[in-house]
């Protein structure tokens, strides 16, 4: 029996399609590697699959005492975001340190001292 799509499912699929497009554009521009693209492809295809077939998650929902598939997806999404946020934080801090070090070395190398003759 074919169930009518809910509004939230339509939004989820459109969002996944948009994110896939973003990943594709970045792959074309060479900003992400092929491996990273495949990773994001799997993430968004899986997301679309579960959004369209939430009943597949019913056994897991019962086991985890989660009422709705949407709740489970929200929890998983939050965990992924927290992980990515932490990864970004660590990456940015590391880059900041490297930029600071490089800038300081350039400043020392090009130091200009003025002395009165």
């Amino acid at each position: 029996m074919v169930e009518a799509l809910l509004g939230i499912q339509i939004i989820a699929v459109m969002f996944a399609a948009f994110m896939l497009y973003v990943a594709f554009v970045h792959r074309k521009q060479g900003n992400i590697t092929r491996r990273e693209f495949v990773y994001w492809l799997l993430v968004w295809v899986s997301f679309t699959y579960f959004a369209l077939n939430p009943r597949i998650l019913d056994p897991i929902l019962a086991r985890l005492f989660v009422t709705r598939a949407m709740d489970l997806l929200s929890i998983v999404a939050f965990m992924i975001l927290a992980y990515l946020g932490f990864q970004n934080h660590v990456g940015i801090k590391s880059l900041q340190r490297q930029i600071e070090e490089i800038s300081r070395n350039i400043a020392y190398k090009n130091a200009k001292t003025k002395k009165r003759p």
Binding site: Y108, K112, T113, R116
Partner: peptide
């Protein structure tokens, strides 16, 4: 300036 050393960061740190 008598003895002034100028150091320049290429970017704002």
């Amino acid at each position: 300036s008598k003895t002034v050393t100028l150091l320049r960061h290429p970017v704002n740190l």
